[in-house]
Design a protein around this nucleic acid. Structure first.
Lengths: 116, 116
DNA sequence: TATTCATTCAACCTTTTGGTTGAATAATAC
DNA sequence: GTATTATTCAACCAAAAGGTTGAATGAATA
């Protein structure tokens, strides 16, 4: 029993795994059955199934049962929430650009890449 | 020893924790020392220090040492990457809106909220 | 009906995460 | 020079994450 895990927590956590981001990317092309979804992944079907459940838990994926087959499709709402949270900071980084000037910021940015 | 953990993995994972998102929000107002940053959090300074290191590891925070004090400031680049990845799917969700019509989509959306 | 197919459930394992406490380090202040 | 302050390091702990394998469930097929 969890104490108040927000939508945003779940969405960010779900998207933190590269396999799950690939799943999301894959589902933009349309609905897929679990088995078909799992095909290109170098892991067990069970592992993919668990990833799908995580995405479902975050509301990023919705499941439609048709006999023994489960069709998965993407849901946009949580992605929009993530986009909205993140874009709050657009104001922040644009301000910094304005303050220091594009040229200096560019240099700063280059320095940053180099030292990572 | 980690096998290829991407920038995006680190950024999403860093932002999945609500404390760390609060830290990010807090740092938009300007630089802060670790101690001052930690003030409003109901956890040990050490815990906050560890969160800061996670954010640093994801490139979201940069540290400037001045004597014994460490000043932390926000870095926008990884936030931009997250925004860029997420907004890839804007096309996807806009398409769905177009395809089904705003009214139906709205109803769908309402159903979705209700059953979460 | 017996078999195969699509999928989940359950148990297990290892690594990571998010927190704690206590000690170490290093700079400042008295 | 001793105490205090700012911060990390190290060890520990419980819970969660990401994978595995094997069994269970339930629908389709032969």
């Amino acid at each position: 029993m969890n104490i108040a895990v927000s939508n945003l927590d779940l969405a960010f956590a779900a998207l933190a795994d590269p396999t799950r981001r690939r799943i999301v990317a894959r589902l933009t092309r349309g609905e897929l059955r679990v088995t078909d979804l799992a095909l290109p992944f170098a892991m067990s079907l069970n592992a993919v199934s668990k990833h799908v459940k995580v995405l479902e838990g975050a509301g990023l994926v919705r499941r439609r049962r048709e006999g023994r087959e489960h069709y998965l499709r993407l849901r946009a709402a949580p992605l929009r929430e993530v986009a909205r949270w993140t874009s709050q900071y657009e104001r922040f980084w644009i301000q910094r650009l304005d303050a220091l000037g594009a040229f200096l910021e560019q240099q700063q940015e280059n320095d940053d890449e180099g030292s990572q």
